[in-house]
Amino acid sequence: MKRNVFITSLTMIAAFLILYGSAAFSGDVKLLRMATTTSTDDTGLLDYLKPYFVKETGIDIQWVATGTGKALKLGENCDADVLLVHAPDSEKKFVADGFGLNRNVVMYNDFVLIGPASDPAGVKSKNVKECLSAISSKNIKFVSRGDKSGTHQAEQALWKASGLPVPDKEPWYVQAGQGMLTTIQIAAEQNGYTLTDRGTYIKYEDTMKGNPPLKILVEGDDLLKNIYSVIVVNQAKCPNVKSDLAKAFSDWMSRPSTQKLITGFKLSGKQLFFISSK
């Protein structure tokens, strides 16, 4: 009796597996796999664009959202067909090393420096150089992504551009090793400053119901431009990647109609991404 129950449940599990197994292997549609950064996914931009892309090209798309560092690594390992990332220096190296083709700048937004409303470092409305010098000389808490993401790389470039050494073990310099929103939250908990892309900040502002403890203190500096580009993974290095689909995506992102969609994407009534950058 009990043995029967046991065997019956095993059979049911087996049947379940076979059904799902066959379902998983059927339907080999045109599927594009993209590795991208968390900001494009967290803000909802990709979810917003996907149905248009599928409808207009007949290509299905899936993405793995991660830091730009890991996204590039996935491309290097041939685990993605196309990349949508925002770390120009690393991207150029990636293409130079032969892993990627057709680096196609598709949009930009900008980074902003945020900090407590009380602004203990006194950086409001200063430029980036002055701001970072003030933070480091006054030993005010600064929270960094610390995860080799596009934002992290942009932040490191800012320290260098300001003529300062990139901090590492300094007690006021906190390396979170987390995504952008978590990093903002850590900065808020610690009453510190951080660098974020504007899109994520708007999202954060939105979740805080318009009254966030951290405010934008420095913005609009040319150094703060955050450029997103699409890179097709090189089929010469990765024979199995679908570079035709990847190319189709890259082209589609540059289409005027798509660019219009991107500028039309708003969160809390604010535009997140901009086009026609150099």
Partner: peptide, 8 residues
Amino acid sequence: ALETNKGQ
């Protein structure tokens, strides 16, 4: 993990 990262 994702929702937590997004602050949700």
